[in-house]
Design a protein around this nucleic acid. Structure first.
Lengths: 203, 203
DNA sequence: TCCTGAACAGGACAATTGTCAATGAATTGA
DNA sequence: TCAATTCATTGACAATTGTCCTGTTCAGGA
């Protein structure tokens, strides 16, 4: 349990990508996999496309196959904060709006042209009822996500911006080369000027 | 789903307390409830008792019936940070060490004399295998915990210490009256002097 | 009862960080 | 290709916060 097999998946089909993701945690037969796949929908998004607006119903959860999404929050003063990036093999949504079926308070947009599987909560619930293994899968996946968030909170509590910067490198390998540093700063909760100054003193 | 029924539970038995907690999310028969309870162990801890040391195996997850626990992390400079409080009806453990069955990096101690149910991972897994409803329960509970952590991260990103202080009031009602303000500061990630200054300008 | 230590507020000062402004490099699109 | 935009860096200054310190209050123990 809880080990990730990181290999090159560029030659795999989209369905094989999802199968691989699920089989990291539970084993499925061919039949079961086909059944699971029937509940997902393959989607293509353009760069800069907004796939969830604040105030919309958050109808889908996404499993990113290729590309890069981000989840942002507008605060009371109009500032934008990045809550999460969604690169390859990540699951992403406005969790609260999705699970409570309420209006989105977050925005999701595409930093790159993106391909993803989408799953509605209704389909997800059907899946779990029909196939307890999928409930096991979601529980393990959610538990892992919880641990990730706990580490990020520990970073806010115990680390300065410099350490947080190095932490994001490990959480999102390759991200630094794909997005402006201002977005990294927004994710870390510092101004871009502060992040810029870190590189001087702390390479 | 996802609504909490906050009522006075002081007159309920310990088992009724746990039953109530589970029935917030899933329905159990009397037989099933008895089966579930068999997997838990009732435990009593003294004030100031350390129930998980850094480096120990995190063998238990706790459901707090009465009292107050806290989870702390020692950083590289020897400073202590409070990751979580565990008051009545909260679940608490070193999640990473527990779920990956590795050595604890966190410490759990009692801020008050505490009564709690404990559950080992082994018993938890047995429970989920025998009773899929319990897997549903843990999934919903974990999902809720995830949303809580996301909100805390949003607080770090978008709020100053003053807003974070008001946020903790809603997450842990009554906590302010039960712990020194220095602990609140540690949870918020600010010095106690800064927290003290907030009360002046922002009552 | 007195003593001791914890808790807390507040002052003084230093360090960090945010904000604003300017510059130059790099990228994009017509 | 050129113009426009985006992005990163840097300096100056203000605001916030951390650190160190003192003094007061209060609760618990000898």
């Amino acid at each position: 349990m809880f080990t990730k097999n990181e290999t090159d998946q560029s030659n795999l089909s989209t369905t094989d990508r999802l199968r691989k993701e699920i089989e990291e945690f539970v084993c499925l037969s061919e039949q079961e996999l086909d059944f699971v796949l029937d509940h997902f929908q393959l989607r293509h998004f353009k760069k800069h496309q907004i796939i969830l607006h604040e105030g919309d119903n958050a109808q889908h959860e996404y499993f990113v196959l290729d590309g890069l999404l981000r989840v942002t929050k507008l605060d009371a003063t109009g500032k934008e904060h990045i809550l999460q990036f969604g690169m390859e093999n990540r699951w992403i949504t406005d969790s609260e709006a999705y699970h409570t079926q309420s209006k989105a308070t977050l925005t999701i947009d595409c930093l790159e042209k993106t391909t993803a599987f989408s799953l509605t909560l209704e389909q997800r619930d059907k899946l779990c009822q029909a196939l307890p293994k999928m409930e096991t899968f979601f529980l393990k996946k959610t538990t892992l996500a919880l641990l990730t968030l706990q580490k990020r909170i520990l970073c806010f509590l115990s680390s300065n911006a410099s350490d947080r910067y190095h932490h994001i490198l490990s959480v999102y390998p390759g991200l630094i080369q794909r997005v402006p540093k201002a977005m990294i700063a927004s994710y870390l909760g510092v101004s871009r000027e502060t992040l810029s100054r870190l590189s001087k003193t702390n390479p």
